[in-house]
Structure formats: C-alpha cells, structure tokens
C-alpha cells in the first residue's frame, strides 16, 4: 500500500493491495464461519435435544467460551501448528489456512451456544405438535434447524462479526505477512504501530462498512425468504 495515502484515496482508486487485503479478510472470516457452522449447528442442536450427565456444566462452559480471548485461541492453535507442535509437519503455520483454523476455534462456541439456545426454545414450542405427529428424531432435528433458520442466520452473523473483527488470533498464527496473511485487522494494527493513525482509522471505517454491508445483505435475504415461507 502506498505510504501517506488516505484510506478514502485507496478505496476510490481501487488500490490493488487494499483490495487483496479485503478479499483475504473476507475469505478467511467467511470460511471460518462456514466451518464453525458445520460443527456448531449440529453440536448445539445435539446438546439442546439430548439429556445426559454433566449437560448443565457443558452448557455453562460453552456459553463461557463465547468470550474466549482471541489471543488464547491463537496461541493454542500456534502451539498445535508450530513445527515443534503435534501438527507441525502439515506446514500450516503462517498461512491463511492457519488463520481459518484459529477463527474457527473462536467462532464455533458462539454458533454452538446460540444454536443450543435457539433450538431448545423452539423445541419447547414444537414439542407437543411434533410428538403428536409422531415425528422421528432425525426429522425432528431437521425440522427444528430449518424452522430456526432465520435465528440461526443471526447466530452465523454474530460469529462472522467476531471473526472479521478480531486481530489477536490471526496475527499470531498468520504472522501478518505482507501480501500473504495480511488482513484488514492486522493492517490496522500495523498502521497503528507505525503511528499512521489516520490511515488506521480510515481502514477501520472501511472494515466496519464491509461488515455492515454483509449484515444488510443477510437481512435483506432474510426478509425476502420470510415473505416466501414465513
């Protein structure tokens, strides 16, 4: 990115370096949200619909993990992926994939905990009807997830917001390598440490704008879908 440029200038001129950074940020955070949903939605549903010993402590821990400090998640993933760690031979450290892994660790508890609450509430509402209709366990889960889809979309957005906003985890496992693992948030951290505060703030505004746009898109999709299927 050119020195002394304002964020507005970079946006208006379509600066390729900025574009690459935005693109990487979105790919990493959206992928992490996707994988976290793949794990978190079934996990949350399972906890919501089953009764087992130690269920309550599991829920407490899951809810608490929504506040997992990114640095801790980053450090844990770093130690796993480091050449001296158990998965070191995969050579993932300081790659975008490592950042996806770290953010997946961060986002999964959020999606799982919100899914658990949503599905459990909906199950309370649906229990009598579904039992009376003699609906089997598998169809029951599918029904609850499908009917809770709009609330679950909000859970996914919460997870995505967390991923897109955090810097602590990805700067540890990604290394903030220019042109390779540099994202919006690590760029903002870097420009701040260079004392380039106006550019840092400008990039922050760009980041917020993108997150708001995605949220608006999801909202629009939700409204459109609701009109079709209530």
């Amino acid at each position: 990115m050119p020195e002394n440029a304002s964020a507005l200038h970079l946006v208006l001129t379509g600066d390729p370096a900025l574009f690459a950074i935005v693109r990487l940020s979105l790919i990493v955070s959206i992928s992490a949200t996707f994988f976290a949903a793949l794990i978190g939605v079934p996990l949350g549903s399972l906890i919501a619909l089953t009764r087992f010993r130690g269920r309550e402590p599991v829920i407490v821990v899951l809810n608490a993990l929504m506040g997992l400090p990114p640095v801790v998640a980053g450090l844990a993933v770093y130690l796993m992926l480091s050449r001296s760690g158990p998965l070191g031979s995969w050579g993932l450290l300081f790659t975008p994939l490592a950042m996806v892994v770290a953010q997946t660790v961060l986002v999964t508890p959020i999606i799982a905990a919100l899914t658990r609450q949503t599905i459990e509430d909906l199950w309370l509402e649906y229990r009598d009807e579904l039992t009376a209709m003699n609906v089997g366990p598998l169809r029951r889960v599918r029904t609850l997830i499908w009917d809770a889809r709009f609330s679950l979309l909000t859970a996914l957005l919460a997870g995505f917001g967390r991923a897109a906003a955090e810097v602590g985890a990805i700067i540890i496992v990604g290394g903030n390598i220019q042109g390779f693992t540099r994202t919006m948030t690590t760029t903002i951290a870097l420009e701040t440490s260079k004392g380039n505060l106006p550019l840092a703030i400008g990039l922050g505004i760009v980041l917020i704008t993108i997150v708001v746009l995605i949220s608006a898109l999801a909202w629009g999709a939700r409204r459109a879908a609701e009109r079709f299927s209530g």
Partner: peptide
C-alpha cells in the same frame, strides 16, 4: 390431536 393453542410451523 388439535391443541387449544396450535403451534404453526414456520412455513406456508
């Protein structure tokens, strides 16, 4: 059975 307060599934 039809309950006194029937629950509508979130569909058409």
């Amino acid at each position: 059975i039809m309950f006194q307060h029937p629950v509508m599934l979130r569909r058409s």
